[in-house]
């Protein structure tokens, strides 16, 4: 859960964009930076290599304003996607309140997506966090490319759903963004839950704010 500072009346929430290298995590943040009203966002910090690959992280604070006496802020982070930067990636997850996995839809990046997803589960577990119990969303980026995999295949590989054991959560939960689809459902007597997903073209901004809205709403729900 986010840290609530009763002295300065502030609530800060940490959102981390995770995923394979060159998948569009930084592009997501850049689009948010360029579109959000300047008064509502802080300085964007990018620790990148000379070739503009993320070396450590990108950071963008976004200010939601004062709600019921509390200043609410979202701190958006990206991690470096390249496999060999795992030590840095793990550090950024510390204290995370919500995760967005940015997958690269291109057919030939499927293996990299699966590897990054596995790495996310592993790193969360090493911090003692359970990804199935914190706000989590998946964004399928680069939907405009001709070699983009069908959504059904991406879903099967990256978001097949996990078993729901808690009886209190075992009830059909419609996906608010996709009529007719469910986030929690029953199949052959077993209950499953999956993360909400979004299609995106981060370079043009399509789907970027839909993803951010979904994850930030899920995070504020955990405060109540």
């Amino acid at each position: 859960m986010s840290m609530i500072n009763y002295a300065s009346r502030e609530i800060n929430c940490k959102l981390v964009y995770y995923g394979p290298g060159l998948g569009g995590k930084t592009t997501n943040l850049e689009f948010v930076y360029n579109k959000v009203a300047p008064g509502a966002r802080g300085k964007m910090i990018s620790l990148a290599t000379e070739t503009e690959r993320t070396l450590f992280f990108d950071f963008l604070p976004v200010d939601l304003g004062t709600i019921r006496g509390f200043k609410v802020k979202f701190h958006l982070y990206t991690v470096p996607g390249q496999v060999y930067y795992n030590a840095s990636r793990k550090l950024i997850l510390k204290g995370v309140d919500g995760v967005v996995f940015v997958a690269d839809s291109q057919l030939e990046r499927m293996e990299a997506n699966v590897e990054a997803m596995q790495n996310l589960y592993d790193n969360m577990q090493q911090h003692g966090y359970d990804l199935t119990r914190i706000p989590f969303a998946i964004q399928y980026n680069k939907r405009d490319l001709p070699n983009a995999s069908p959504i059904a295949e991406l879903q099967a590989a990256l978001n097949p759903g996990w078993p729901v054991e808690d009886p209190a959560r075992q009830r059909m939960l419609p996906d608010p963004d996709r009529p007719g689809e469910f986030l929690v459902w029953q199949e052959d007597g077993q209950w499953y839950e999956r993360a909400p997903y979004f299609e995106a073209i981060a370079a043009t901004g399509e789907g970027v704010f839909d993803t951010l809205k979904s994850i930030s709403k899920a995070v504020v729900k955990t405060l109540g």
Partner: peptide, 13 residues
């Protein structure tokens, strides 16, 4: 708080 926060998220994003 939750309702207002959601409205603000819609407004900002």
């Amino acid at each position: 708080f939750l309702g207002e926060a959601e409205d603000e998220i819609d407004r900002l994003f």
